[in-house]
Design a protein around this nucleic acid. Structure first.
Lengths: 253, 253
DNA sequence: CTTGCCGGATTGCTCAACAATACGTACGGT
DNA sequence: ACCGTACGTATTGTTGAGCAATCCGGCAAG
């Protein structure tokens, strides 16, 4: 369902570290831990706000007044401020001293910056030697989810599956930190998607290209996969920059 | 001076965007903006704590009790909690619900994770085509700083210059976000440096290799530079893992 | 049209309090 | 001596109110 995008916040950093060197007799419980509602108000608050921002319920530029928002959300101002600090650190929101926090507005420079990072990270991840089979499978799964969503015209889910695809690509590198960075990067990127007139025409053509890239990866043709990915990212970037230019022009008149 | 490491926090994200399209008659003021002490208590607090943690004044595992720390630092508990949220998001500190915040202890898995990320990002950054000359110059400057520090046996500064070198390498890619990620990654890494018996013997041998890599980059021999960098990172990782294993063994007995 | 000033509104930060949770310890049973 | 339980204490989680600092809008004066 559409709430799939919520995901666990990048917060609450996985305390003990990923070490957990095999020999523990209690493996298999780490998954159940998240079920135990051990999430603070601040985390839930940040998740809710993040979801709202990503979903477009709070358009870029919106000011989030502390007093009003706190009353609206039924939490204290102090608690809300802690959540704001998290979101600001993630770049979803900017915090202007003595002015307030605003939903981040990304400009052309930001888009170029994000895609520069993506090109570097994703292409390098694709070339990882001996990637974990689990990650490769996840890529294929994301493609299939996207194709199913296209078949049923669930355009929003198409976009979600697309981001899942790219997360899976980065996961080829097998680094938790790289995954976290990517999650944040893609969350930022969703802020830009809203400038596209109709998102489905934006995401739909990329599904086929994703499938092709997935196949190349499965076949171990990493060089070709990286090239296809670069082309993919270049096109998406250009399209987003076009969308931004258009919006800017409209705004000007 | 040893306080050189402070630097501006990765906080307060550069609001307006890098646009500022030339024609403004008031250029030259954007530089003066930082002089205007527009930093909140939370930012300064986070900077201070970050510096203390990085410098080793607060060893990994140390608990930072809110009440005591707030009184010690002369700030409110709420303000301190906001700073803690930032540091937790950066990974320098972990926040265990209802237990408190502790200076992060990195294990072998974390070191591997960090170096996996560094290998991917730094090597890819080195291969950037047409890097800004400014970034190349910064690399050379970092090398020279390191060499000067070695000559005068300022080992702490050698370590700082080394990290500056690697930041400069990532800057070749020309992405602000990538730079920020790297800054955080290297800050985390400093937590591990403290496990090395004597840091100077750890950093010193790498200075020559940095110089060689810098030369390769200046000559545009990016492939060789990337290979040298990979070898460099592999060695450093192995050495750190050895240090951690040793510490673990000591701790056990 | 610019400059200076003022009042209202918002944020930055503090303080104090209470509820919820974790930890150490003493107690009792076996 | 071992184990589980209950309890008291300390710490964290969250709230609410309050005041100083700062920003924004409008208005008057030059």
């Amino acid at each position: 369902m559409s709430q799939g995008g919520s995901s666990a916040g990048p917060d609450s950093g996985d305390a003990g570290g990923s070490g957990n060197s095999g020999t523990s007799p209690l493996a298999g419980l780490s998954g159940a831990r998240v079920l135990l509602d051990r999430t603070s108000t601040v985390s839930k608050l940040a998740d809710a706000l993040r979801a709202q921002i990503i979903e477009g319920g709070l358009p870029p530029g919106t000011q989030l007044a502390e007093h009003a928002a706190a009353k609206e959300l039924g939490v204290s101002r102090n608690t809300l401020r802690e959540a704001f600090r998290l979101l600001a650190h993630e770049g979803l929101v900017i915090h202007e001293p003595h002015r307030g926090v605003f939903v981040r507005t990304l400009d052309a420079g930001d888009v170029r910056d994000i895609y520069t990072t993506r090109r570097l990270v994703e292409c390098a991840a694709v070339r990882t030697e001996g990637p974990p089979p689990r990650a490769v499978a996840e890529i294929r799964a994301a493609v299939e989810t996207a194709e199913a969503a296209v078949a049923e015209s669930r355009w929003h889910d198409v976009g979600t599956a697309d981001l899942r695809f790219h997360s899976a690509i980065v996961a080829l590198a097998g680094s938790r930190r790289l995954n976290d960075m990517t999650r944040r990067l893609l969350a930022e990127l969703r802020l830009v998607f809203h400038v596209m007139a109709d998102p489905h025409r934006f995401h739909e053509p990329y599904v086929h290209r994703n499938a092709a890239i997935a196949t190349l990866i499965e076949q171990g043709r990493t060089r070709e996969a990286a090239e296809a990915l670069t082309a993919y990212l270049d096109d998406a970037e250009a399209q987003l920059l076009g969308g931004i230019a258009e919006r800017t022009r409209d705004r000007r008149r």
